[in-house]
Design a protein around this nucleic acid. Structure first.
Length: 190
DNA sequence: TGCCTGATGTTCT
DNA sequence: GAACATCAGGCAC
């Protein structure tokens, strides 16, 4: 198996965002394995005023500039976590925000954590972090290993993929760096 | 169904 | 001190 650091180290943020669609995250919760499929992503890099890395390397964004294939978790709005997959060569501040996932295995375990069901379970970046118990303790975690692993699937065909501008940001909002799976009920804003 | 707002901590200016 | 890659609940229509 090629390490994620090698695979994603060679990809720009938009390329990585496309590559991540259809891939699966494997999370062990209370001894139970849960598995979700990534259905919506957004790319950010240091040339991008909307990116945390735009202002340069800080204590907060240090992980973004580190090896690819790591998890960058940040806290926002006083109550939410969001998670990103670091991409690009070491020293470049690029990452892909995971905005939505769909449950594959262990949906009940996710529901217990969220007290929600159906598409509302994981159709938003903070929602999926809550469902998968992703917090700051996983910041910088290597996604090749437990307790949170990223498994690559075959790249998704462009015919089932939609490319749009990003949502929830004020700067560079016209950059078409958001990707999601067509006709998928778990996408946050189809 | 859709708009508005409160909750609430971290980061950077 | 303001901005923030958000969410959920309440209210008007």
């Amino acid at each position: 198996m090629t390490p994620l650091s090698v695979t994603f180290g060679a990809l720009s943020a938009p390329d990585a965002a496309r590559r991540l669609l259809g891939c699966e995250l494997v999370r062990t919760l209370d001894g139970t394995e849960t598995r979700v499929r990534i259905v919506e992503t957004e790319a950010y890099d240091e040339s991008d005023a909307a990116s945390h890395s735009y202002a340069g390397r800080t204590q907060r964004t240090d992980v973004m500039f580190g090896p690819a294939g790591r998890l960058y978790v940040y806290f926002t709005y006083g109550m939410h976590y969001c998670c990103n997959v670091v991409t690009g060569p070491i020293g470049t501040g690029a990452a892909v925000l995971i905005r939505a996932v769909e449950p594959v295995i262990g949906e009940e375990a996710l529901q217990r954590r969220r007290a929600k069901s159906g598409h509302d379970l994981t159709n938003g970046p903070a929602k999926l972090c809550q469902a998968l118990d992703v917090t700051k303790t996983l910041n910088g975690h290597d996604l090749d290993h437990s307790p949170l692993r990223l498994e690559l699937n075959e790249p998704v065909d462009v015919t089932v993929m939609v490319r749009t501008t990003r949502v929830g940001i004020s700067k560079e909002a016209n950059r078409p760096w958001r990707f999601y799976m067509k006709d998928n009920g778990y996408v946050s804003r189809p």
